[in-house]
Design a protein around this nucleic acid. Structure first.
Lengths: 252, 252
DNA sequence: CTATCCTTTTTCGTCTGACCAAATGTGTCT
DNA sequence: AGACACATTTGGTCAGACGAAAAAGGATAG
């Protein structure tokens, strides 16, 4: 899958993996190009190309006559700061998308209102793979609103929020854990937003959007609480087992 | 400055410039590696390295046996979408930083309030290079507020807005053209924001922030109007000259 | 005349081997 | 022990060659 018929790509991936696995730790040096060439059974120019790609990706620094050094990966390497929690993201979305909805209420076109209707209809899908369709419809719904602000900066910011949601593993997992229950309330909330937009009522749109995110936030908190409880329970069980085993071992 | 003692870097920059200048338009093909090698007076491996760096940067796509194709630059390549106008940016900032101020009002620490005082003091600087200091203080002021939200997502978004402001040539120019006049009103507006934060009054903080950006927006509109008038005047003059010349030519 | 197939050319992909320059390590001389 | 000169290591670049994939061009069948 990764070869792409281009050798340097394969070498690039292998080197990246070795770095990620701590084989070549940050601050450390990669083996000399000649050694890598021999080890990967490719020529030196190919190793060279891989290293240059690695350099362009900001993963290593090449020092002439000295060696190529592994850099500590900056936090935003994948465009996502993984230290952002699902709570923070949701709060930010509430604030920003709330304002976006208010702005959109004054700017939205009839065509866009129609598109929102369609998205809402899709969101209510109950079919076999309805979950996925519903997810996409949700995203579409919010995207239309961000477009309706007619402000590219605003919609760019909101797109970025979705990107964080989808690309930060923790955040994504947190959202997955709550999005599968109560599909009806989600539809209801979105309908309320749509109604406010139809009325071209900024205050109502903002309020409806805030209510939507407030529910998500509450669910996140509840899920987090549950996860913490589960974690404690699991650890309790674990240590109990360990004790039990120890007891048996010392007893036998 | 750009050579870095590494040939491929220099080639990379030159190629990037040629692409930016439209010499090699998006969708089009770069000349063959051998031609480029000859033209830049470097060997083919060096050209190859530059192309691979270009590829890693997402600027070109290389198709085996066909050629290397210039990609249309995705909006976030440099984190900046140059099609965003200063108006859109300012509106977005008003919405987002307004909410951030409201949130910060409920969360800000005494220490941060003190830092805001200092920034405000620096902003009022009237010394020789006061303009630069004042600029930095302005940025610092807004940054402290975004930090005071205690929401990394919110502050990340706001940082991104500043980044757009500083890195989009058009936007930056527009801001430069208005930021030099009436330094006092800027200080006054920021003081009002600070007072609202001190009172821990979210509504007042939001309102003050909105007022701040409303003034900026008005100035941008005024400046834009003036620029348009100037442009019309310039074109009028130009065409008048052309007519005049044509008249002389046909008359002589 | 058109459409399809095959050959040729172009262009990228990779290798070998060599030499240069910078950084580093080593040994000697004082 | 410290400073200087030399040898080694390591990246930087070049030249030329051959293979493979894609595009271009021409020949042939319909």
């Amino acid at each position: 899958m990764g070869s792409d018929k281009r050798l340097y790509r394969s070498v690039l991936e292998r080197l990246e993996k070795l770095i990620d696995d701590g084989e070549y730790p940050p601050g450390g040096r990669l083996p000399p190009e000649r050694v890598l060439a021999e080890r990967f059974e490719v020529s030196r120019p190919t190793i060279r190309e891989a290293i240059i790609a690695l350099e362009a990706l900001g993963r290593v620094e090449v020092k002439t006559g000295s060696g190529v050094y592994v850099l500590t990966r900056p936090a935003h390497t994948n465009g996502v700061d993984s230290t952002i929690s699902a709570f923070e993201l949701t709060e930010a979305r509430a604030l920003i998308e709330g304002e976006a909805a208010a702005l959109a209420a004054t700017m939205i076109s009839d065509e866009q209102l129609r598109e929102l209707e369609i998205a809402l209809y899709e969101m209510a899908d109950e079919s076999a793979d309805g979950r996925l369709i519903s997810e996409l419809a949700d995203q579409k719904f919010h995207h239309i609103i961000s477009e309706a602000t007619r402000n590219k900066m605003v919609s760019s910011v909101i797109d970025n929020l979705w990107h964080v949601r989808d690309n930060s593993p923790d955040v994504h997992k947190a959202y997955q854990s709550i999005c599968e229950v109560e599909p009806q309330s989600r539809v209801d909330e979105h309908r309320e937003i749509l109604e406010a937009l139809k009325q071209r009522d900024p205050q109502a749109a903002r309020k409806a959007m805030h209510a939507h995110f407030a529910r998500i936030l509450n669910k996140l908190i509840a899920a987090n609480e549950k996860a913490q409880v589960d974690e404690i329970r699991r650890k309790t069980l674990e240590s109990r087992e360990r004790f039990s085993l120890n007891h048996l071992a010392s007893g036998g």
